[in-house]
């Protein structure tokens, strides 16, 4: 048990911080710990959480995805067309939305792998293309999502917010088995050392392609869930999510130099970031000062992670 805690130190710290924040949020909320409060909280957290998962897959292979927000905007606009109709039509619609996200990610991956351009630059350019495509679909916000379906996914089941159930499924049903597959290990190998991964016979091109496709797929899931929460399509949502997803993965203990961290950490980081924002809302801090406090808390949280460096015994340790 102790060994487990030690080897997953980053996730454990993020988890403890999250629980403390959530407790103080529920404590200060005027309506206390009710299903209603938890549901709204969980929905907001899961949107950013899925975006952070997308970012995680790009970051773990030592890349970065600046098109996460743009993929969300595009899939959100797609969703506003296909999620209002018959039952079977909506089922295919959901597949189409997630598929569109995965296609965007695959496109990123193809350009990165075969064009040999840095991910940060590629996704910067493709983000502009995706936002353009989203604007083609929805020049102005509009469209609709079936309310019954949206309610089913954004409310609660037996008092447990559906968003938390989805989070649980993503972790237990997808991430834990996935990490043990060849591809799951390949992601970490590629992120730690591309040369070593290549020399151990890993198909590095395929793994990188898969990583960015997964990033796009989770971007699509984030866009889908966002559509259920807002029940409308809006091409202008891109900018906030991309940068917040980067902040979330870093808060969750995922290292930007690749190979370290987990999907659980990324989710925890996103939940922390959103809980801080919600906490601020009820904290009694004047509303004009809230953005400053949010920024300062983000900076402090990141700086505490960096404070390890001040204790480095050998000056060379800091360059690793």
């Amino acid at each position: 048990m102790l060994d487990y805690l030690r080897s997953n130190r980053r996730e454990v710290i993020a988890g403890v911080v999250l629980i403390a924040l959530l407790a103080s949020y529920l404590g200060t909320h005027p309506r206390g710990a009710s299903t209603y409060v938890l549901t709204i909280w969980a929905n907001q957290c899961l949107i950013l959480g899925l975006a952070a998962c997308a970012q995680f897959f790009a970051v773990v292979v030592r890349g970065i995805d600046l098109s996460v927000g743009a993929v969300m905007a595009l899939t959100n606009c797609v969703a506003s067309y296909v999620l209002d109709g018959s039952g079977i039509g909506m089922a295919f619609g959901m597949l189409a939305v997630v598929g569109a996200g995965a296609l965007c990610g695959l496109l990123n991956g193809l350009i990165i792998v075969y064009g040999r351009i840095q991910p940060i630059v590629v996704t910067l350019a493709t983000a502009s293309v995706f936002v353009g495509a989203a604007l083609l679909l929805r020049p102005t916000p509009g469209g609709a999502v079936n309310y019954d379906l949206a309610d089913a996914i954004t409310l609660d089941v037996l008092g447990i917010p559906t968003a938390l159930i989805i989070t649980g499924v993503a972790v237990l049903g997808f991430w834990l088995p996935f990490r043990r597959t060849g591809l799951g290990l390949g992601l970490y190998a590629l992120g730690s050392s591309e040369q070593a991964a290549f020399q151990s016979g890993i198909n590095t091109r395929l793994v990188r392609l898969a990583a960015f496709t997964l990033a796009g797929l989770f971007g699509g899931l984030a866009g889908l869930f966002y559509s259920f929460v807002t029940t409308t399509g809006d091409a202008g949502i891109a900018s906030g999510f991309t940068l917040n997803s980067i902040a979330a993965v870093v808060l969750g203990g995922v290292l930007l130099r690749g190979g370290v961290g987990s999907l659980i950490g990324a989710l925890a980081g996103a939940f922390i970031l959103k809980t801080i924002a919600s906490l601020m809302f009820f904290s009694g801090i004047p509303s004009l000062a809230q953005p400053l406090f949010e920024g300062m808390i983000l900076a402090t949280a990141i700086a505490i992670g960096g404070a390890d460096m001040l204790r480095a015994r050998n000056k060379l340790e800091v360059f690793s």
Binding site: L256, L292, G295
Partner: peptide
């Protein structure tokens, strides 16, 4: 300070500085 002394990746630290400046401007 963040990048050279605390060794925080510049992409994250400058982002945090950016959001603090935004907060200051709003305040």
């Amino acid at each position: 300070i963040g990048v050279a002394i605390l060794r925080i990746p510049s992409m994250v630290w400058t982002l945090a500085v950016n959001s603090m400046l935004l907060g200051l401007a709003v305040l």
